[in-house]
Amino acid sequence: MTFKEALKSKKFIITAELFPPKGTNIQPLLEKARLLRGKIDGFNVTDNQRAVMRLGSLAICRLLQEQGCDPILQMTCRDRNRIALESDLLSASVLGIENILVLSGDHPTQGDHKEAKPVYDLDPVQLLKTARTLETGVDLVGKKLDGSPQFCLGAVVNPLADPLDLQLAMMEKKIEAGAEFFQTQPIFDSKLLETFVAKTKEFNAKILIGVFLLKSAQVAIFMKEKLGINISSHYIDRLQQATSPLDEGITIAGELISQMKPHVDGVHIMALGMEEHIPGILNKVK
């Protein structure tokens, strides 16, 4: 079943994120992908994430597809103007890549090329609309295309954002612009998840909730204090006391997925370079 078919079905969907390397050594990434093949429904490939220059997402997506993994091409608005974005959407299409996740993208000042010009010519809502426009056989200026693409479009939402109503209003805008699925920031808090799920019930899009693999108590404390992500002290204690914090993190991620499973469309696993542990997480899911 492809990712797109899974979205249309009642299946509990699992996606995960893979990071292209900084350089040309793609073997480690392809090995991780092979480990996950058949176990997850979609492989997000990030687009110079954290504004750090890396190998391109499109090339990796194509390589994954050749390995039998269904890729989700992440496209940020940070580095390309509308000409380049439209052109890359067409390129993705002819390479057989139909799943696209649209994001604004971290600002260059947060990455490793701090002096780079931030583009943001289109915003995510406009980029979603642009992709839908190309599907109708014309480009953004109304010129006719010789052959038109088809996409399965997604976007991101942050259920932890305050005010939440503003995120939800923005989410509705993204749906109106063409988003069929959403992937979220990681949630550790079941109360918050409950609220978010209740408020998005009527939305005409599948929502894959972010699940983060905590490899240590330090990471959890950093996320809590610096990123404002609500991680209960119960989890932090467990990580602190564990002889192997990573194993404990794997168990916690598995528990989170088990708790979410009855209530949500699916999950999006963020293992931050430790994707080889995703099968371990999935084994813990009840």
């Binding site: 931030p118 915003d123 954002a161 503003l166 612009a177």
Partner: peptide, 27 residues
């Protein structure tokens, strides 16, 4: 900071912009 005309981006923390914590998130 990202010139989003259909914002916000979702990264604001405590009302401040994710790019520059001295600035309010205008959205």
């Amino acid at each position: 900071a990202k010139a989003l005309v259909n914002g916000p981006c979702g990264g604001a923390i405590g009302g401040k912009c994710e790019v520059n914590s001295d600035q309010d998130c205008v959205w």
